[in-house]
Simulated assay, not measured.
Amino acid sequence: MNFTALCALGAVAALALSGCVANAPKTTHEKLTVDSSATDCTVSADTAPAGTVSFTVTNSGDEVTEFYLLGEDGLTIKGEAENIGPGLSRELVVQISAGSYFTACKPGMTGDGVGKAEFTVTKSDAAAKPNADLAAQIDTANTNYASYVKDQVDQLATGTDAFTAAYVAGDDDAARALYAPTRAHWERVETIAESFGDLDPKLDLREADLEEGQEWTGWHAIEKDLWPAEAEAGFAAYTSEKRQHLTGLLVADTATLKEKVQGLSFTLSQQTNGAIGLLDEVASGKVTGEEEFWSHTDLWDFQANVDGAAVLYAGVRDLLVQEDPDLAQSLDSEFAALQVLLDAQRIGDGFTLYTDLTPAKIRALADQVNALGEPLNQLTSALVL
């Protein structure tokens, strides 16, 4: 699916947004800073008024880090800034209501993280509100994206049923054929799934990210068994009982995801941050070949992440044209250039295996991901602040 086609998916949203008012008043916002080191996650304040809050996260450690704003349960992700390299800064902009939250950082992007602290958002009537027409247009974009997420998860659930049936029956050729196309529905909305606490690791944890004593479940645990020739020497094929166990959990956890997205609603910042997060997924796993370690179907995931980011962008593009036409033009160009590189790797309905890519082609893809990431990281600030 190319960028032009994805823009068509956002056509309803685009039409609804076509009457946007330029320079509409935006909400006032609180500006906070975060210092993420190897051992601490220091936020400049532990309270903020309800509305738009921006966190400028600086990595003073020596590992790539992440910053999270978590819900009252300490698990649900309300906002995140990922892949912040040593010495670099990244802005996270969120729209949040009054309540209790937590902040935390995760140096090395693994483990439980550091510096988890309470963060309180107080009631506020001071923030300016956008005019009624613009608010209605944003609501339409948010509603349309919620429908897209539900549709992708519905298709994921249906595909997972077929995939697991083939795998349990021992029809490994059929299961391998279904693996990447089914996972594409997951990858298009991956950042939404990540917001539901431990559902993401249950469904999508890589073996390299396992913690001591943690049970390995989900897609990648099954992937290893389906491509045993790619596994380490001495790998023992799963028993039929283990296949039953893993597929039972995969189906159940996917059903839980489907249930959770039914009542989902979005803010404008969640949409724009979601697009940024999906491209981060490409940069941190797909373009490096780390995601699909045995099947090497990373480009299927790569395309699906880009699909999801492009749908999110298409839904807010007309708003951006009103606020920052130069940024919109840059994003149009960079999305299209990345799609050209991906299309060059297509084989029928699929893609070249990651292991068949030359170093030059991998570098070209990585460079274009970075070229798109730079303007995409400005999207939230351009529309929300």
Results as ranks from 00 to 15, higher is better:
Ala174Trp: 00
Ser124Val: 03
Asn142Val: 05
Ala126Ile: 05
His185Trp: 10
Phe235Leu: 08
Asp139Thr: 11
Ala135Glu: 14
Lys202Phe: 10
Pro130Ser: 03
Ile192Val: 15
Asp209Gln: 13
Ala231Phe: 04
Ala184Ser: 15
Thr182Lys: 02
Asp172Val: 15
Ala221Thr: 11
Ser124Tyr: 03
Gly197Thr: 05
Leu210Ala: 03
Pro201Gly: 00
Arg183Glu: 03
Ala162Cys: 01
Ala229Arg: 13
Glu232Arg: 12
Glu215Lys: 14
Gln155Arg: 15
Ala128Phe: 11
Asn142Ser: 10
Leu205Met: 08
Pro130Glu: 01
Ala127Ser: 13
Val149Phe: 06
Thr217Phe: 01
Lys224Ile: 06
Ala135Val: 09
Ala174Val: 11
Trp219Thr: 07
Glu194Val: 12
Ala136Trp: 02
Leu178Ser: 11
Arg176Asn: 12
Gly218Arg: 02
Ala162Asp: 13
Ile192Leu: 06
Thr140Val: 15
Val168Met: 06
Glu232Trp: 12
Thr217His: 00
Lys202Ser: 13
Leu205Asp: 11
Glu215Cys: 03
Ala231Pro: 10
Leu226Trp: 02
Trp186Thr: 04
Ala184Phe: 04
Arg188Leu: 09
Glu230Gly: 09
Asp209Cys: 07
Asp173Gln: 13
Arg183Asp: 07
Ala146Arg: 04
Ile222Ala: 03
Thr160Gly: 02
Thr140Gly: 02
Glu194His: 12
Lys224Pro: 08
Thr217Leu: 09
Glu223His: 03
Ala184Cys: 13
Lys123Cys: 02
Thr160Pro: 02
His220Arg: 09
Leu226Asp: 04
Leu210His: 01
Glu207His: 10
Phe163Gly: 02
Leu134Asn: 14
Asp198Gln: 14
Arg206Cys: 03
Thr164His: 05
Ala157Ile: 09
Thr217Asn: 05
Leu203Met: 10
Ala193Asn: 15
Pro181Val: 07
Pro181Glu: 03
Ala193Glu: 15
Ala231Asn: 06
Asn142Met: 06
Gln152Pro: 08
Gly170His: 05
Gln137Thr: 00
Trp216Gln: 01
Gln214Val: 09
Thr160Val: 13
Glu190Val: 08
Arg176Leu: 04
Ala141Gly: 00
Val153Met: 01
Asp172Pro: 08
Ala174Arg: 12
Leu203Ser: 04
Asn144Met: 15
Ala136Pro: 01
Lys129Trp: 07
Glu212Gln: 13
Phe163Gln: 00
Gly213Phe: 00
Val121Ala: 01
Ala233Met: 10
Tyr145Ala: 06
Ala208Met: 12
Arg183Ile: 05
Ala146Thr: 09
Leu178Phe: 01
Pro201Met: 00
His220Lys: 09
Leu203Trp: 02
Lys129Glu: 14
Ala141Cys: 00
Gly213Ala: 11
Gly218Phe: 00
Phe196Gly: 08
Lys129Tyr: 04
His185Tyr: 14
Asp133Asn: 11
Ala128Pro: 11
Ala126Cys: 08
Lys150Thr: 14
Phe163Trp: 10
Ala231Ile: 07
Leu134Phe: 14
Thr217Gln: 06
Ala127Met: 12
His220Ile: 11
Thr143Asn: 13
Lys129Thr: 14
Asp151Val: 14
Asp198Val: 14
Ala184Gly: 11
Val168Ile: 12
Pro228Leu: 09
Ile192His: 03
Val153Leu: 04
Phe235Gly: 05
His220Phe: 11
Leu205Phe: 02
Ile192Ser: 03
Gly213Thr: 05
Val189Phe: 01
Pro130Tyr: 04
Trp216Pro: 01
Gly197Ser: 14
